[in-house]
Design a protein around this nucleic acid. Structure first.
Length: 555
RNA sequence: UGCCUGAUAGUAUAAUGGUAGUACGACAGAUUUUGGUUCUGUUUGUCUUGGUUCGAAUCCAGGUCGGGCAACCA
């Protein structure tokens, strides 16, 4: 019995196109502009485009939409390729709109020859003014009446650099009174005497998105050109170029972009955070970028699962970041090695344990794996570090950790009975005193004692120091862009907490950047790839564990 | 007050004229050497008004509310 998985609207379109013979196979593309780093919203588009082709035996190209030399850079090209690969996708062909500049130029010439494009002399301001408004029609430009020959020679002169930026543009001759603003003689080419990251100074005229994008799709025989909803009103123009030029009829389809609670997703805003140094670069672990999520400890699988779960539709949405957290916990629970780390240490002294003696205990690597994923050694001694929050001088109700006269299990070790504690001058508890129960050793417990609480610990003598970085949401508002004023006013001042000297168990010293761990009872962590050095380990918290106790006490 | 577009639990997403279901969340319980995991149960929904129909979330008409569109950006 196979559960019928329902199709989303794009899958339905593809199945229909395939069954009606409109297409015998499909070809999609992921078309980023290399002017920034990819974020989780792009991941949705990547999963969609590659996923669709995968599912229906088609192909997907990676194409850089590099038609604006002012904002683009090879740094971005490289990061985008790395991110797509890291997510687990391999493109069929790698292309650049700039590789098509010759072909696109020829197409422009042919539109001029058909009398469907003309060279404009007006300034940007004048053009904008003559375009009218959404409710009022625009005015036709005098340049509209130029002859084909005149347009041809003017356009050639543009290409040859005879004019400066802004002096001339090439416009499509469509309809200045169209209810769709994009059809009011849109600009096809503008002059930019800026070096392009790939074509250098070969060109000084560059095609606009609407002209270049659709025609690039046609050149690559893209069957389904998938983009986000804001391009919906561009579709008539996209189709107009295809029809007038008789090029391959790629078809544009739109879906709703991803929004996530407590973060921003626009490249412009993310760039601001980077430039104003409000975060530590594009790959800051708090950023919703692919590189940030990677450094934070997210896995490609968790992101792909997330994209699968959120679905694809045409309605505006804002996804609860809790779903992303669920997806990473779901994955990491199955693969992350369990380790003991004490973030805020106090001493636990086992008064009836022999001085100078060391017991080597076995700790399971991961209870979710077969044979617990194997075991690592954990030295046990008289003096241990435990989490200060695991002791309460006066226990609140339902407390089942340490408190005077209470018993807890030390994970993978013994049950201990609290006999006392010591405070410093300020009244802060600095030592907890316990007696251990020798017959309660983990795995061979004959004590018959049942305890409710289990806590983590590290031998003080063997513990190592490491820096641990705890991250929280970057913004305090669910939808920072929706708030009054500058979105940056909504930043969470406590989105990063650095613990300079956490106590970590010895086996962690061989961790490699990117390794993933569950620090028992604390959360999932990964070794940071940027700040870790020979003699200093830096761990990033990917996500906390679900914490029923914290939830209960916060009520 | 033009054009395009959308509206199903808190958030997403199914049901394609025939029992409104699923996931995340929330709540309750069981299991647990992680207050984790796992398991069980509960909770909450078709924007509105008409119409067509034996039957409407679905089709039709009007309304309401949301998003997008007037860069030589993509």
């Amino acid at each position: 019995m196979s559960e019928e998985k329902s199709l989303h609207f794009l899958e339905e379109i593809v199945e229909k196109d395939l069954s009606t013979g409109k297409h015998t196979s499909i070809h999609t593309r992921f078309p980023p502009e290399p002017n920034g780093y990819l974020h989780i919203g792009h991941a949705k588009s990547i999963c969609l485009n590659f996923g669709l082709a995968d599912k229906y035996g088609g192909k997907t190209n990676l194409r850089f939409d590099d038609t604006n030399p002012v904002t683009e850079d090879t740094e971005y090209v490289e990061s985008i390729k790395a991110d797509v690969r890291w997510l687990g996708f391999d493109w069929e062909e790698e292309h650049y709109a700039s590789d098509y500049f010759d072909q696109i130029y020829v197409l422009a010439i042919s539109l001029i020859k058909k009398g469907l494009a003309y060279v404009e002399d007006m300034t940007a301001e004048e053009i904008a003014a003559s375009k009218g408004t959404p409710t009022e029609p625009g005015r036709e430009s005098q340049a509209r009446s130029r002859t084909v020959e005149e347009n041809l020679s003017l356009f050639t002169a543009m290409k040859e650099g005879k004019y400066n930026d802004g002096e001339k543009v090439l416009r499509a001759k469509i309809d200045m009174s169209s209810p769709n603003m994009h059809m009011r003689d849109p600009i096809m080419y503008r002059i930019k005497k800026t070096s392009h990251h790939r074509t250098g100074d070969t060109w000084c005229i560059y095609p606009m998105y609407d002209f270049a994008h659709g025609q690039s799709d046609s050149i690559e025989h893209i069957t389904h050109s998938i983009c986000t909803l804001e391009f919906e009103v561009h579709r008539p123009l996209y189709n107009w170029y295809v029809e007038q030029l008789g090029t391959f009829p790629s078809t544009q389809y739109e879906f709703a972009r991803l929004n996530l609670t407590y973060t921003v997703m626009s490249k412009r805003k993310l760039l601001q955070l980077v430039q104003e140094k409000l975060v530590d670069g594009w790959d800051d672990p708090r950023m919703p970028t692919i590189s940030g999520l990677r450094r934070r400890g997210f896995t490609p699988l968790s992101i792909r699962n997330f994209c699968e779960r959120i679905g694809v539709q045409r309605r505006e949405n804002i996804i609860d970041v809790g779903l992303l957290e669920f997806c990473i916990r779901e994955d990491l629970n199955k693969v992350a090695l369990r380790r003991m780390v004490v973030l805020d240490p106090i001493k636990l002294i086992i008064t009836n344990y022999p001085d100078g003696s060391t017991d080597i205990l076995k700790g399971e690597n991961n209870p979710e794996l077969e044979d617990n994923g194997g075991y690592r050694d954990m030295p046990f001694t008289k003096e241990l570090w435990i989490e200060s929050e695991d002791f309460q001088e006066v226990p609140q109700k339902k407390w089942f950790r340490l408190a005077p006269d209470m018993k807890v299990r030390l994970k993978s070790a013994y049950i201990v009975h609290c006999t006392g504690f010591k405070k410093d001058e300020t009244g802060k508890v600095v030592e907890v005193h316990c007696e251990y129960i020798p017959e309660s050793k983990s795995g061979q417990d004959t004590s018959g004692i049942n305890v409710k609480g289990t806590i983590h610990w590290i031998s003080a003598e063997h513990a190592l120091d490491a820096e641990v970085r705890l991250y929280d949401r970057l913004f305090q508002a669910e939808d920072p862009s929706d708030e009054e004023g500058d979105f940056k006013l909504n930043m969470n001042p406590n989105s990063l907490e650095i613990i300079p000297t956490a106590k970590i168990e010895p086996s962690l010293k061989d961790a490699k950047p990117g390794d993933q761990f569950q620090f028992i009872r604390k959360g999932y962590f990964t070794l940071d790839s940027k700040f870790t050095t020979e003699d200093k380990l830096v761990f990033n918290r990917t996500v906390t564990l679900k914490d029923a106790w914290a939830k209960m006490t916060s009520r």
